[in-house]
Design a protein around this nucleic acid. Sequence first.
DNA 1: GTCTATAACGAGATAGAC
DNA 2: GTCTATCTCGTTATAGAC
Lengths: 208, 208
Amino acid sequence: MGKDVRVARQARGTDGGTASKILDVAERLVQLRGFNGFSYADVAEELGISKASLHYHFAGKAELGEALIERYASRFTGSLDEIETRPIDARAKLAAYAKLYGDVLRRKRMCLCGMLAAEYQTLPKPMRSAVVSFFDDQEAWLVGVLDQGREEGTLRFSGSASEAAQVIVGGLEGAMLVTRPYGDPARFQIAADHLLASFAADAPARVS
Amino acid sequence: MGKDVRVARQARGTDGGTASKILDVAERLVQLRGFNGFSYADVAEELGISKASLHYHFAGKAELGEALIERYASRFTGSLDEIETRPIDARAKLAAYAKLYGDVLRRKRMCLCGMLAAEYQTLPKPMRSAVVSFFDDQEAWLVGVLDQGREEGTLRFSGSASEAAQVIVGGLEGAMLVTRPYGDPARFQIAADHLLASFAADAPARVS
DNA sequence: GTCTATAACGAGATAGAC
DNA sequence: GTCTATCTCGTTATAGAC
């Protein structure tokens, strides 16, 4: 493996190095407790290293936060690409998309960017931009699926594909948000199924 | 006005006294920044009083938080009662319900309990219970409206009314959550309209 | 009911040795 | 890369005067 690849993986926190482990722990803590609900001390203790070492890898909490979103978004993009490679129709792609959210919830976590959306007003500017970009990316991918589904006849919706994509992202994030206090994944599934059904073409259109 | 009423109003923060003003400021700060995103110092400075005075009215942040949810839930219940008095069908009641959320969002705020749901894992136990109770109350009211709508033929949905209520609460909370970073209320409205339409009976049923 | 003062703790961050 | 030690500041909370 060339040095460039190694450096790139390290920067992205995809290898098994310390930076990667820091991101793993911090990511879980943010998804569970929020960006304002964890500290460098929490991460350091869990990894058995000092707070000072954290600052070597990530200058400050803001930079750590940026790296968290970047890696999370990158992984999500990877999952979306993988779904695109499957020989399935658009409706099934939508179901696979919803399952990504369900997988996060089954690990007792909130979507990283959904959590950060709640804390949006307290975030440093670079993190804010990254959160919005995450949602933009999600919706751009969904627009492609929705257009495909409308063409092939598996999906049906009124308004623009962009609007429909916003409805889907909001619906899934909200289902995660409200489900977590109840600790019952079935609750999420009901909302997700309803949402998907409201875009399916195999039932008569209902959204005027 | 009798002493009992006065004491009760004071306890609930519905009069214009100091406790009420503290709740007003704290409520806005939590809805904007989250429970872990504001401090006693923030509230004290805005009101021009000392932090120590805050502790006279609310022993600690946890007690302030409980009082916040209690008052918020109580006001919300009042709004639901008011909707119930209107001579309108269930579908219109559902639209009025969604408008309550839209009103919050137009003030740039997140639903108090939606915000607290994100921070759920970091909340003191009494606050957690109060948050869950809030959602339970919302859904109980919605169940009544949904049953009415199904009987009178203005609403249509598959599954139990309870499940439908969960879908509605999650959908509205999620639309608020994702809309706020964009600062565009129209985004919320699109999601809310879609949600309402998916339960309306004037279009053919689509949720299997 | 409100104040000043301060305690007690935790947060993010830095210096400099190893 | 990682450490110990330290700094500075913010946060919650309390004591006690007025």
